[in-house]
């Protein structure tokens, strides 16, 4: 059978079957992505872990291997546990504030407003502002000598003297969380608004015909429809808030005392003033483990819910 023999021979060119060559071609196509992963994710991660096993100078990047000593010192350090607690408070409060404000504004902007396009553009303003400018503006507002907030408070007799917004605990943490909430809530608004606009109006019409109240419509239609986007927003914002550095550093520098010193600020303190790259890397690795654990739990929960819904 010469007509069939020729293609068969082609399929076994160089001893490789067609399937094997297709697979190899697939791997070749994946190679750039794998290389990017190795260079941009795997290498820095392994390098950070390797550094965390050393007592190393930030400037010379030379030092001695100390095994898990940096981790042991970390777990015994009161500064670490303090910063860890502050990071949790910061992340949870920021997230709650951003989600509340973000969803609230999205619902308002989804309604029929006279100046809806302008309002949608304006609500983005804090998110577009650079952190440095936002911090300067808020520091000015909070200032106890010239700040507008204190001026209003004193003008309306709400307090005898100026409120110490940033120089007293827990005011400093609360003030910084308020600024972070104001700065980042538009991200939640944009994401939620995009999803709100995709919900079929027929669902609400049907609910209205069935006599559902506004609260029932929100709870039974809007919220379930928002669930996937809220899940993604919560994950992203938790990651970003947990590792927030610039806003806190510029607002309070971690003070007063250590009341706003979160883990990223502690890393900075170790790596730069103390020039201790190894202990800084150890904190960074611990932060990574916490984030991965959080992501794992959340992704698992979300997966279970999705499977239950599709059944």
């Amino acid at each position: 059978m010469p007509a069939l023999a020729a293609p068969m021979a082609g399929r076994r060119r160089g001893g490789w079957s067609l399937a094997a060559r297709n697979a190899a071609f697939g791997y070749v196509l994946m190679l750039p992505s794998i290389l990017f992963f190795l260079v941009l994710i795997a290498y820095p991660l392994l390098q950070t872990f390797w550094i965390s096993l050393h007592r190393m100078s930030t400037l010379t990047r030379q030092g001695e291997f100390v095994g898990l000593a940096n981790y042991r010192a970390l777990l015994e350090s009161a500064d670490f546990w303090g910063a860890f607690g502050q990071s949790l408070v910061w992340t949870v409060c920021c997230l709650a504030l951003q989600m509340g404000l973000g969803i609230g504004f999205a619902l308002v902007l989804n309604a029929r407003l006279t100046f809806r396009p302008a309002a949608r553009a304006l609500v983005l303003f804090p998110y577009l502002l650079s952190t440095v400018v936002a911090v300067l503006v808020w520091q000015w507002l909070f200032n106890d000598m010239y700040g507008y907030l204190n001026y209003l408070i004193e003008e309306y007799g709400l307090s005898d003297g100026p409120v110490n917004w940033l120089g007293q605990s827990p005011n400093a943490m609360i003030s910084t969380i308020l600024v972070a909430g104001w700065k980042h809530f538009p991200f939640v608004t944009i994401a939620v608004l995009a999803r709100l606009q995709g919900i079929p109006p027929a669902l609400y019409d049907a609910a209205r015909i069935d006599g559902a109240s506004a609260w029932s419509r929100f709870w039974d239609i809007t919220l379930p429809q928002l669930r996937p986007v809220l899940a993604m927003v919560i994950i992203l914002r938790t990651i970003w808030d947990f590792k927030e550095f610039d806003l806190i550093f510029m607002m309070t520098g971690g003070g007063p005392r250590s009341s706003t010193e979160t883990l990223p600020l502690l890393i900075y303190k170790e790596v730069f003033p103390k020039l201790s790259m190894g202990s800084g890397a150890a904190i960074a690795m611990v932060m990574l483990v916490i984030m991965v654990a959080f992501f794992w739990v959340y992704a698992g929960q979300y997966d279970r819910e999705e499977r239950a819904r599709s059944r």
Binding site: F142, N143, D144, M145, G161, P162, V163, N164, W165, L166, G167, Q168, A172, T252, G255, P256
Partner: peptide, 11 residues
């Protein structure tokens, strides 16, 4: 001033 706990050069 009450805010001295947060003051640096500029303030």
């Amino acid at each position: 001033p009450a805010g001295s706990a947060n003051y640096a050069y500029t303030e």
